[in-house]
Design a protein around this nucleic acid. Structure first.
Length: 748
DNA sequence: CACCGTTAAGTTTTT
DNA sequence: CTTAACGGTG
């Protein structure tokens, strides 16, 4: 322990030694945030003699929780297994299972993921005669997420705090949806958190139990907490006040999912006696990269402010790579990877980042052609595959006899002659009797004479009987302690699911069978990691841990491809950031929808991308790029302009190489031709192109008239074309910032 | 009920 | 250009 403490810098050590009372650690990228948190927990246990049982550490991802657990285990001699190091969601699920009866759930409730939530919304909407064409369930889901993220739940005391329009049809859908989940004994992701809020608010004794349970609470990635999680932390920590949160407002890139920057900005208001510490020394990147990234992020206004520094060497300059099109961009990246690799740099330490998943394709094509092994992080998740969801639905009906959604998913998969009509009949009777689908089927099968009016054919009745028998029996086996993997195998066969796949001889079905085998080994793996395995336990790990086991594969020295969001928390020697063009990055939609706030989040994203690089950062953009089947000339991202010149060199590669003096602006002459719609001839193809104006129209000092604010002069301008933003000082001395494309401005 | 063709839309996704 | 999701038909 002594040694570990010595290996910390002063800031880190202070953070570790400050154990009692609220503490917020603002930790810059690569500043040893996890190390500090891990050491702090070790210190609490080893030096302060705190029982591991009394410590709760909350993270967002299972990956982060695992990493933290592993690292603590190597530092602590006593029982680190007694620690609660877990995700917010898993923690809440655990609490809800223990206390389910208080809020009208039973402990075997199902957790619905996003697609299941959507399916329920679809049902609700169709009951209102609304088709998905008229209203996308996604929109309703967003609305409901919004409420969840704020910590709203049905029956909350201070409802007026939420500014809810009770006449909003969305609010009605939300209520019906909630009702539907309740009937299914199901909880969605957001409901896990708000369910615990509900519990703590309405049942003070339960709250007291958990307050007593935990003496120390630590939170990782605090900048990503939403309002509901903030409230949860408040409940848990307000009595003992030993809460330590670690975060970096500059790396907050999930506000669109409810992460609320106020949680950082208001921490001190909430805990007036709070200490705030900063970890500002970066151990990861070269000085060039750190300083460049710092100057970019300094443009954001919604931040507490940190000054990152590093004692690392200056390192190589950042390179801005101007390519002809996206294909040449990919070629550049591929070629550079090859030559770096020849110089002895491991490809495992290289990564390509992009703003949107769709951009990976071009890169992949090129890498494949060059025989460079790569792996795409993210993408289609194992547990989202149809066959996996189908089998999981079977398991869910077994565990939770009220899960109507899971039932309707499997009732006719494989096809057993129970179509929409039968399902409709069952639903009606189920609603009438106030029970779930699986339950009504059990009843109908047991007492067919009571349900003559349903007019079910003998064949349908027998099909339903077989199905119900199967899950009722499996349920008994499960509670009598039969291994989940055995139950799974028998369901796989008895349901006829496996046979129906085997009957199809195509390649796809083959792959599906393999996936089902993989599911089987996942269950077995779960069994070895738990003392008392049961199906419910397995389902919980599945729903709450969607990580792809991708790190399990062997190390083939693959180059990593991922979105910038996926890159958070990672680091690579060589980073290629591609597609750094206006409208892509910053994304046009984030600007349109959220304006300044959106731009700042995009800038944080850019900052996250930059600070992943340890040795060298390549920032690539293409002059022209095929997007949605059209050739677009977006121009380099404004973020490139935000990097001070001294930190980078500009290089043109491929078709446009040769002229080595550089900057997009130098190209103006060549591109003036494109200012209007033009035919562009290339590779024997003719495209109709339109291009943004390459140059700022509002130069510093020019006088303008704003139809609302009157006369003023331009004091700053960033970006160009329709995305240009100008800061104008008006006659009354007020400065305002406008997006040129929206603002009613006239040059004088 | 399953398949296919048409249509519309097109970020990011720790749980 | 893709992809997903609906509606019509065999």
């Amino acid at each position: 322990m002594e040694e570990v403490l010595k290996s910390l810098n002063d800031q880190q050590r202070n953070a570790v030694l400050h154990t009692d009372g609220p503490l917020m650690i603002l930790a810059g990228a690569g500043s040893g945030k996890t190390k500090t948190l891990v050491t702090k927990i070790s210190y609490l246990i080893e030096q302060k003699g705190i029982s591991p049982f009394k410590v709760l550490a909350l993270t967002f991802s299972n990956k982060a929780a695992r990493e933290m657990r592993d690292r603590i285990a190597t530092q602590v001699s006593s029982d680190a297994g007694a620690l609660s190091v877990t995700t917010f969601h898993a923690f809440c699920a655990r609490v809800l299972r223990s206390e389910a009866q208080y809020i009208g759930l039973s402990r075997n409730f199902t957790i619905y993921d996003t697609s299941e939530s959507k399916a329920v919304i679809k049902q609700v909407l169709s009951r209102h005669g609304i088709s998905t064409k008229e209203l996308s369930p996604y929109e309703v889901l967003n609305y409901m997420d919004g409420l969840n993220n704020l910590g709203y739940y049905v029956g909350i005391e201070d409802e007026e705090d939420f500014d809810i329009d009770r006449s909003d049809p969305f609010f009605a859908y939300y209520n019906e949806y909630t009702n539907e989940l309740r009937k299914s004994n199901a909880v969605d992701f957001g409901g896990l958190i708000t369910g615990v809020l509900h519990l703590f608010e309405k049942f003070p004794d339960v709250l007291t139990k958990y307050i007593n349970r935990f003496d120390y609470i630590l939170v990782d990635e605090y900048q990503d907490t939403n309002r509901a999680q903030f409230k949860l932390l408040n409940y848990l920590s307000k009595a003992k006040r030993n809460i330590c949160v670690v975060g970096d407002e500059d790396q907050s890139i999930y506000s669109w999912r409810g992460a609320d920057i106020r949680n950082i900005l208001e921490f001190e208001e909430n805990f007036p006696e709070a200490n705030v510490m900063k970890l500002e020394q970066n151990y990861r990147s070269s000085r060039n990269i750190i300083e460049a990234a710092s100057s970019v992020i300094a443009r954001n206004t919604h931040r507490k402010g940190k000054e990152m520094w590093t004692s690392n060497p200056t390192g190589e300059e950042i390179e801005v790579i101007e390519c002809f099109n996206e294909k040449e961009e990919a070629e550049f990246i591929t070629n550079t990877i090859i030559s770096l690799s020849k110089e002895g740099n491991p490809t495992r330490e290289m990564a390509v980042f992009y703003r949107t998943n769709a951009q990976s394709r071009t890169i992949e094509d090129q890498l494949r052609r060059a025989n460079i092994p790569y792996r795409v992080v993210g993408g289609v998740k194992f547990y989202e595959r149809k066959e996996i969801k189908d089998m999981l639905a079977y398991l869910r009906v077994i565990v939770n006899s009220k899960d109507s959604l899971a039932f309707s998913r499997i009732v006719n998969v494989p096809s057993r002659g129970i179509g929409a009509t039968t399902l409709r009949k069952l639903e009606n009777v189920a609603i009438r009797d106030g029970v779930s689908l699986p339950e009504i089927v059990e009843t109908v099968v047991d007492n067919p004479s009571d349900y003559k009016d349903m007019k079910l054919s003998a064949k349908v009745r027998s099909s339903l009987g077989t199905l119900a028998n199967m899950y009722v029996e499996a349920r008994l086996s499960d509670s009598s302690g039969k291994l989940p993997s055995e139950i799974y195998e028998s369901v796989l066969h008895e349901s006829g699911y496996l046979d129906s796949l085997k009957a199809r001889k195509d390649y796809e079905s083959q792959a599906r069978i393999e996936n089902l085998e993989e599911l089987s080994s996942a269950i077995k793996q779960y069994e070895t990691s738990t003392q008392k395995p049961d199906l419910g336990g397995f389902l919980e790990t599945v729903t709450l841990d969607t990580s792809n086991n991708e790190d399990m594969g062997m190390d083939l020295g693959e180059v990593s491809l991922m979105t910038i969001h996926g890159a958070k928390g990672l680091e690579f020697n060589h980073v290629f950031l591609c597609g750094v063009e206006e409208n892509i990055f910053p994304s046009i939609r984030s600007l349109e929808e959220f304006q300044d706030f959106g731009l700042e989040e995009e800038r944080r994203l850019f900052y996250v991308a930059m600070t992943r690089a340890m040795k060298k950062l390549y920032i690539c953009f293409a002059q022209g790029r095929m997007l949605y089947g059209q050739l677009k000339f977006n121009g380099p991202s404004r973020f490139i302009n935000e990097i001070p010149n001294k930190y980078y060199t500009w290089r043109k590669v491929g078709k446009i190489s040769g002229s080595s003096s550089n900057s997009w602006d130098d190209m103006d002459d060549e591109y003036d031709d494109f200012n209007q719609e033009q035919e562009f001839d290339s590779e024997e193809k003719t495209w109709v192109v339109s291009r943004n104006q390459p140059e700022s129209k509002y130069k510093t000092g020019s006088k303008v008239i704003h139809s609302l604010y009157g006369e003023g002069s331009v004091i700053d301008s960033e970006g160009f074309g329709p995305d240009e933003k100008v800061t104008i000082r008006f006659k009354d001395g007020v400065n305002k910032k406008f997006m040129v494309k929206f603002a009613p401005l006239t040059l004088i």
